[in-house]
């Protein structure tokens, strides 16, 4: 066997160090869920693997941690999925239809509509957070899924992405469809949507993760504990840990991990779509 070159060894060492840097913190969270809380407050995280994971999982998912008794891990998990999927689907549907109108139709005010829509790319929700809150409050949408999801959709990232994609679709396709007598609806449903499948998948993954991981907006909009998402619940976890005599790290770490696992699985399993969508959408 050939002796490996020194530079190759260094390359691998750097990559392994980088992987560990990214991975160790979450392994530490996991380790802490396997030992009793009374042990954690003495030793902190260690290399020991205990047998408490099942108990902590049960506590985290089925018992409520707040005051109202309604925010169990299960209910937060459900809300997170509603937010992630609702946001992704809403964004894609609205983005695709708007992009279709902009690219494929002769439209008066097309330029105006275009600018109105794409100006929204400039300002993230974070800079207009308070007035947005007031609007949602005035519309009576606090502590509702609509209030949680729809304001987050009010930016044109997906529209922009689909516009770019539709423009790259060959012109001949729409000509051929028209010669064959296909109307705009048929062309969209039978040709454009199937053609965009990969793009839709990539967008869905990116938007699902983005929606799932929202923190500031859910923190403001949801005050009812049964509306909490997992990521929003982190705030409460930290506050509860602060005040406790024996902080329940086992249970809170399970919740933090449950908040991480679904989006991570999506990204890892659909890696190639995800990377394609990410690197192409932002250009």
């Amino acid at each position: 066997m050939r002796k490996p070159k020194l530079s190759t060894v260094i390359d691998h060492a750097v990559l392994i160090a980088g992987s560990l840097f990214l991975m160790l913190p979450l392994l530490m969270l996991l380790q802490m869920t396997t030992i009793p809380d009374t042990e954690i407050i003495q030793t902190g995280p260690s290399l020991k693997i205990g047998d408490q994971f099942g108990d902590n999982l049960e506590k985290a998912m089925l018992q409520a941690s707040g005051f109202s008794g309604e925010n169990t891990g299960m209910s937060m998990l459900k809300n997170s999925f509603i937010l992630g999927i609702g946001f992704a689907v809403g964004k894609i549907v609205i983005g695709m239809t708007a992009a279709y109108a902009i690219v494929y139709f002769r439209l008066r005010f097309a330029t105006l509509a275009f600018w109105l829509i794409f100006t929204t790319l400039l300002l993230p929700l974070e800079v207009r957070i308070l007035p947005s809150y007031e609007v949602v409050q005035r519309l009576g949408m606090l502590n509702t899924y609509q209030g949680l999801i729809i304001p987050l959709i009010a930016s044109a990232t997906a529209t922009f992405f689909f516009r770019q994609f539709f423009r790259s679709v060959p012109e001949e396709l729409v000509e051929a469809a028209r010669i064959d007598g296909a109307g705009p609806v048929k062309f969209f449903v039978d040709i454009l949507v199937p053609l965009s499948k990969t793009m839709i998948a990539a967008m869905f993954i990116i938007m699902f993760v983005y929606g799932w991981n929202q923190y500031l907006w859910p923190t403001m909009i949801t005050t009812d504990e049964d509306m909490y998402t997992l990521v929003r619940g982190i705030k409460q976890i930290v506050q509860v840990l602060e005040g406790a005599v024996v902080p329940e790290f086992g249970r809170s770490n399970v919740l933090a991990l449950v908040a991480v696992v679904p989006p991570v699985l999506v990204v890892v399993f659909f890696q190639s779509w995800f990377v394609k969508g990410l690197t192409e959408s932002d250009k």
Partner: peptide
């Protein structure tokens, strides 16, 4: 805009309304 676009007048408006309504209320 594609050269060979459709010229149905009401459909694009209908398609744009959800997007425009949401950004008007929650952005502008």
């Amino acid at each position: 805009m594609k050269r060979a676009g459709f010229s149905t007048p009401w459909l694009p408006v209908l398609l744009l309304v959800p997007q425009l309504a949401i950004i008007a209320i929650f952005f502008y």
